[in-house]
Design a protein around this nucleic acid. Sequence first.
DNA 1: ACCTGAACACCGTTCAAGT
DNA 2: ACCTGAACACCGTTCAAGT
Lengths: 202, 202
Amino acid sequence: MSKTQKGKYQNKNVYLNAAFDIIKEVGVDKLTMRKVADQLDVSPMYKHFANKDELLKAVLDEFIARADILPADELPWDQWVSFVAKGMFRALQGETSWLPLLGTFDVGDNALQVTLSFVNKLMAAGFSFAQALEAYLAMIHLVIGAVTLQSTMGRGNQALLDSIAGTGSISTKQLKQTIFQDQIDIGLPLLIEALRGRVQYE
Amino acid sequence: MSKTQKGKYQNKNVYLNAAFDIIKEVGVDKLTMRKVADQLDVSPMYKHFANKDELLKAVLDEFIARADILPADELPWDQWVSFVAKGMFRALQGETSWLPLLGTFDVGDNALQVTLSFVNKLMAAGFSFAQALEAYLAMIHLVIGAVTLQSTMGRGNQALLDSIAGTGSISTKQLKQTIFQDQIDIGLPLLIEALRGRVQYE
DNA sequence: ACCTGAACACCGTTCAAGT
DNA sequence: ACCTGAACACCGTTCAAGT
């Protein structure tokens, strides 16, 4: 307890940790201000955060920091990109309830750090700034889209399987292999191929 | 009124249309069962749909049908793919509140129709079935990701601009051009480049 | 100044009761 | 058989009242 501590819960981190506990238990979508308050034995709602959105924004940025997806700097750029993309995919796959928030909040400091590292890595490999930034954005698009679809695909989706099998151009086994692989492994190789083509003719 | 009509609102479409009216006004996220009931002057809730999810699933598939994004068949495959992707992007951009649902529901009949058209088009152009299906999934990933990020980017995001400008490797004007373009125009050309490379060495 | 907890205006969903 | 609307168990947010 520092000398400047005032009130029951001056420390924002106490709230962030409580939020993480609850999210681990019930998912982001079922996080409520009341549950945070209950866990801390505090009235709804003592405000470090003006409203629920402010809390979620802070939790999201902390989530990005904890995901810790930046690889070692020695990797060649294409492996580096692949590592980051798969790391993001895995982190988000474990918490798909984050997805709806990615488009609604401005990036926080930790997200920004990832962006800058990515751009620097690709510029060191010979990409222009604009190319590097576009590569970053395209990778994010793929990750978000892949995580979004992963759950639908993973669930089986018999209707889709049946209908597609009806075209008769592929064995069911092959079809399942295509659909049930990690979605990120579909677009990511294509992205890296395209990037490789661009940097070579720089 | 058909002879088999029973009860006040036998017709599911009445509910779908009411839902669309409300969504146009307040967005998908603020659609409630009560609002649908009120608009139809019906008690909450006479059930054509077992619950809110069932209603949303039906509305989503109808939304896909209305988006009407399949282009004319005469286009070469790369333009055809680009047309579909941009059409989806535009449709979803107008209703971003749909995004959270894309990963939670199984595909409906209308979504399936789009998938099959896409796969057929690419197979006619020389792609294998697996390639065509992967191309479709990668395109969907890009569209979902692009729409998700579009709103964050469009909003300005001064923190990101400032921080990146600090790298000094690009003029602010160039930076804004990269960030503020339609997000779909970033990844889509890369995807099509990569696909072109694959079909040629088939 | 700091914190409480009742209150307000909502939700999705259920179900006894009416027609 | 069909439909109602009150009720239940929740929300986010506000704010008079207490300490």
